[in-house]
Design a protein around this nucleic acid. Structure first.
Lengths: 332, 332
DNA sequence: CTGAAAGCGCTTACAG
DNA sequence: CTGAAAGCGCTTACAG
């Protein structure tokens, strides 16, 4: 592969000059400019980002850690990030953690060695001190839906979302409302559940633990939860699922048991992954602007990268909006 | 950020020694070894992959170019690749092309500059000469479902798949079978359509152009296609969709029009994205081992990277298998 | 058993 | 208007 030396030699100039014409970083006479450019194309020269990164101390690469890019929610988030990064001239390294702490650590280590300019981290609730090495090295981190000291983040108003979803069901006359929670992690899921319970309480409906199932965000776990609900002496007439995928799984199971949604049982999801408009029936859900959030996370990170100073910690909260489609209906 | 010099100084040894203990590349006395290791942890030293890459001439990074990682098919493929790469110590840079030639070129350029060790390329039918720069620079490329000279690839037996899908419908007694094709690109879609036509012909059913709609692989376009079918004087009794997402879209539209699947109309997809088991009704499809293919692509690439020699061009063909679920039924 | 030095391929003051 | 040289942070022959 041609180097800057090859180009310089071919053009009969110094490597400084080659560098300067390529980066347009100082004036070069039209004549030598032309010679350099000619040599560049003739030799098919592609400057090494590695060498440049070494001296410039920036790689124009960011790391993205998600639990699983197959999960449509994270897929859409990743898309928003990649999009925005591309426009700004950054590449993104995709890291799936499967919510495994050891994989996270391994990837964090790799990203540190690769000298990424920043990382977008979203996943388990790793102890903050795992993230600190980055902070100390001056590598910006932003997180999503997790609140750490000193780390910028975009947060969701999960309590409000859970509350709104449940209110919607209550207003349709449901009083026996099941809830499919996410795995027992502090923020996301449990705040949604808290919102659910708050709405119930407000409506003077006592909380019934039998109506709470814990899933793991996958469609599969939504199926399991639905099966448990149906096994109850008196099944719920409506279900609030803490994400869309579990709702999809629940609906699939119900249908399989001859239970019609929403006629026999209403189901509301959370997220509004793009798919949710295409399932049968189209899913009522709490709409979250996923791709825009991805974009926002990326921009937030680029801002941190720009001003090396550890400025004020930023926190943006996004509130979801109830989106009524066809999976919920008046209680019969 | 601490460098190897800092560590060497702190441990009172030379940088060679530090390098050797870290890479275990030559014997170092237990005593100095300990001193080095101590300094490493004390200084929180993380060797720069950049510097290493510069001398070793390998980055342990690969590029992945897909049209859109939100499309579940590519999401699953990417997952398989990332997984396998991780195990082998490689990171992957995620590049979405949106099937735009200019984005592809921009990313190809970036990957070349970042000196990735190889790229997995899947997307439009860019002229082969676009890929050639890589080949010439000795950077291995593997492709998926596209056949280029001198480039390793995993291919799908699309003709057979289209044929099998259509045979399935024929065997259920359908004779009026619609087909939703992908965008007009040589390989994937049109071979599936060819298989469809071959099965029809074999059954002595004349090909009817009205029964062929062209989509763009998205659920949205599946909806549009279904609407066109329903607008026909005599709509089809079965639909073969060239991928699952369009089938999902078609089913959503049909349901919206009060048309039941499979009672009123059968629908068969292609791919077996993991979602297809959870839609209503669960989708009959041509099952493709997507994640394994991703893994295979990654391994193929790593093989190329290993032996720098441009060995025999490899081509592996994967045949899909009919997977009958509930979206297809006997004609009524 | 360990160190000094060249080199990977760039950018960027410093000079003229 | 352009070049010589230092330096980014490593690995790896070459020596002893």
């Amino acid at each position: 592969m041609a180097t800057i030396y090859d180009v310089a030699e071919a053009a009969g100039v110094s490597i400084s000059t080659v560098s300067h014409v390529l980066n347009e970083t100082r004036f070069v006479s039209e004549n030598t400019r032309a010679k350099v450019l000619e040599a560049v194309t003739r030799l098919n020269y592609h400057p090494s980002s590695l060498a440049r990164a070494l001296v410039r101390q920036e790689t124009r690469t960011i790391g993205l850690i998600v639990p699983d890019n197959v999960n449509p929610f994270f897929a859409e988030l990743a898309r928003g990030i990649e999009n925005h990064g591309f426009q700004a001239g950054y590449s993104v390294i995709l890291c799936n953690s499967d919510r495994s702490t050891s994989k996270e650590l391994a990837y964090l280590e790799t990203l540190l060695s690769k000298r990424v300019d920043g990382v977008i981290y979203m996943t388990t609730d790793m102890a903050t001190d795992r993230l600190m090495p980055f902070h100390e090295e001056g590598i910006p981190i932003v997180t999503f839906d997790r609140d750490y000291d000193n780390i910028d983040s975009i947060l969701l108003d999960n309590f409000q979302g859970g509350y709104d979803a449940t209110r919607h069901l209550l207003e349709l006359g449901h009083t026996r409302i099941g809830c499919i929670a996410g795995p027992d992690s502090p923020s996301r899921s449990s705040d949604r559940v808290r919102g659910y319970r708050a709405a119930l309480e407000e409506a003077h409906i006592p909380y019934n633990p039998d109506l709470l199932c814990v899933g793991d965000w996958t469609a599969r776990s939504g199926q399991v939860a639905a099966s448990e609900f149906l096994r109850l002496p008196v099944p719920p007439t409506a279900i609030f699922s803490c994400n869309d995928m579990m709702a999809v799984g629940a609906i699939a199971f119900l249908r399989d048991r001859g239970c019609h949604v929403p006629q026999d049982i209403s189901v509301i999801g959370y997220d509004n992954i793009s798919l949710s408009a295409y399932v049968c029936p189209p899913l009522t859900t709490i709409a979250t602007p996923i791709e825009q959030i991805g974009q926002g996370l990326c921009q937030m990170l680029l801002d941190c990268i720009g001003e090396k100073l550890p400025a004020e910690t930023q926190r943006v909260t996004v509130r979801g909006a109830l989106l009524v489609r066809e999976s919920t209906a008046q209680v019969t």
